[in-house]
């Protein structure tokens, strides 16, 4: 519905600058008695009425309420698990560490008893991280992804996050969502689309 709705763009005909004193006098009279100022007063009064009685407030009480963020938003990283076994997805390939342009990912790996790569150390320094998203883009296993935690103000410049902290808790495995990733449209993308003036 919204997509096909035409936007109400109107070109204002302001006229030219008045050339003669008589023209400017007429312009002043016209603008004075047109009541445009009262339209402005009416608009604010209407909005006040709406805000007070019809719940038209646009304020989000931020720490108490939060707006939904887009899946494309790049915030603090999450480490995902395999849904069936619950084992972490990371295979220790080290690509994220290599591609990281701000050198904030540090990882150490070793072979475990099954001769599989195991992550022994994995930290991200969020004081350095610029949230470019290359690590999530390069990850072949969709193991490191960007999550939704965007409140990362801290008292120190360096802030390290450990592998275990970023990993989905094992008891919340059923809540783990598959990462929609880069280019994924936001949930309410359809509603947000507007036609530009060029559309008509």
């Amino acid at each position: 519905m919204m997509n096909n709705e035409k936007q109400k763009y109107v070109m204002l005909d302001l006229g030219g600058t008045p050339a003669t004193p008589w023209c400017s006098f007429k312009q002043v009279m016209k603008r004075t008695f047109k009541g445009e100022l009262f339209v402005g007063l009416w608009v604010t009064l209407r909005e006040m009425f709406k805000t007070l009685f019809l719940g038209g407030k646009h304020t989000t009480k931020y720490p108490l309420e939060k707006l939904p963020i887009s899946p494309r938003y790049r915030a603090i990283h999450d480490m995902l698990r395999l849904l069936e076994s619950g084992h972490y997805r990371c295979i220790g390939c080290g690509l994220c560490e290599k591609i990281c342009i701000s050198n904030c990912i540090a990882m150490e790996t070793r072979y475990d008893e099954n001769q599989r790569k195991e992550v022994s150390e994995y930290t991200i320094n969020f004081g350095r991280c610029i949230f470019c998203g290359y690590c999530a883009e390069v990850c072949p296993e969709l193991a490191i992804v960007h999550g939704a935690r965007y409140e990362n103000a801290s008292e120190q410049r360096a802030g390290f996050s450990l592998f275990e902290d970023m990993l989905t808790p094992i008891d919340k495995l059923h809540l783990q969502k598959e990462y929609e990733g880069f280019g994924a449209p936001s949930v309410d993308a359809d509603a947000k689309i507007k036609k530009t003036p060029l559309a008509y």
């Binding site: 604010t44 909005e47 709406k50 805000t51 007070l52 038209g56 407030k57 646009h58 304020t59």
Partner: peptide, 10 residues
């Protein structure tokens, strides 16, 4: 308060 309500704030 009045300015806030007229601007749809709190």
């Amino acid at each position: 308060k009045v300015l806030a309500f007229m601007q749809r704030r709190l």
